[in-house]
Simulated assay, not measured.
Amino acid sequence: MGRTIGKTGCLFASCTAPWKITHFIFGNVYSTLTINFLYNIWIFLIWGFLLFQIYGLFGKHHRSHYILSFSLCWIVIGSFFALILSSAGPVYYGHITGLEDVYAPLMERLQAMDAQIRTDGGFWEIWALDVQDRLWLNYQNAATTVGSGISAMPSMHVSIATLMALSARRIGLWFGRLMTGYAFLIMIGSVHLGWHYALDGYLALFLTIFLWKLADRIIHWAETARLPSPRRTAPPDQARG
């Protein structure tokens, strides 16, 4: 990815920062660690959920619907929109724009929490900080590795978490509520940890719901097209006199 300006950050830096709201509500160390943990296990959940769908325990339509939606999300949101809306997240705002880093207080707050945890000898750390440093180093060295890249908009974390929630709602009430709650926390975590601007998540949410509905129509059309045509039956022979 070329050296691009954090467009969303420039547009909304002067507004009330959503991260201030999340840190007001979830501002203690343990809440932040929990959010960071849930954000990190996303990578395991998405592939586990995909394998779960491949088994097709809930019917061929649901399996095809989810797999097509999953593919469309990565192609449309994670590739096409990520390219045309290229922007780096708040953590890289000062590096990319060369302007006063309005997100420095957020990163300083996270670093202070991490330092407190290390001082107290805690087992857990705010892993996001180390990952963000590694991604920036790869970006500076133009290194291409698995999971590298600093493009923030739209948020694939929010997109796939939303997709899992939409699928879970079709499977069962409580499973749907659980995954909806998880998607909500991923939306919060994307801002809370400095990965994304709130708008990155909003756009990902809207696009994912649209692609989910589009995939449902495509699968329904494909299933209908495969139905056998009704056979023409010859009129019954007239009774002989």
Rank of each mutant, 00 (worst) to 15 (best):
P105L: 05
L135C: 01
Y93V: 12
R232K: 12
A143D: 12
I5M: 15
A152L: 07
S71T: 12
L129K: 07
I126N: 03
H95T: 07
Y92C: 07
H23N: 06
D200G: 00
G2V: 14
V146H: 11
L205M: 05
A112Y: 08
T162H: 02
L45D: 01
E100F: 12
L51V: 10
V131K: 09
I21D: 01
Y197L: 07
W195P: 06
T34D: 07
A183Q: 05
R217M: 11
L83M: 13
Q238W: 09
V158K: 01
Y182G: 03
V91N: 10
A128E: 01
W174T: 10
A225P: 08
A215D: 00
V131L: 09
F58V: 05
W195D: 04
A128R: 02
L11S: 08
V29R: 11
L106N: 04
R232S: 11
E125Q: 15
E125T: 15
F49Q: 07
F26K: 07
K7Q: 11
S79M: 11
T180Y: 12
T162L: 06
L178F: 15
L72I: 06
F70V: 00
L185W: 14
M153C: 12
A128D: 02
H65P: 02
Q116D: 09
F58M: 03
T162R: 04
Q238A: 14
N138Y: 10
T4L: 10
I126T: 07
L110S: 05
L214G: 00
L166Q: 03
M179Y: 13
F175N: 10
S79T: 15
K60A: 15
L50I: 09
I35D: 02
L137N: 14
Y103C: 04
I218P: 10
I218V: 15
P236Y: 04
H192S: 09
T162S: 06
L203G: 13
A234L: 14
Q140E: 11
I67F: 06
L178D: 03
F184W: 14
I67E: 06
V191S: 04
F80Q: 00
R217N: 12
R226V: 14
Q132W: 10
H23T: 02
Y39M: 05
W174G: 03
P154V: 00
R226Y: 12
T162Y: 06
A128F: 08
V191L: 06
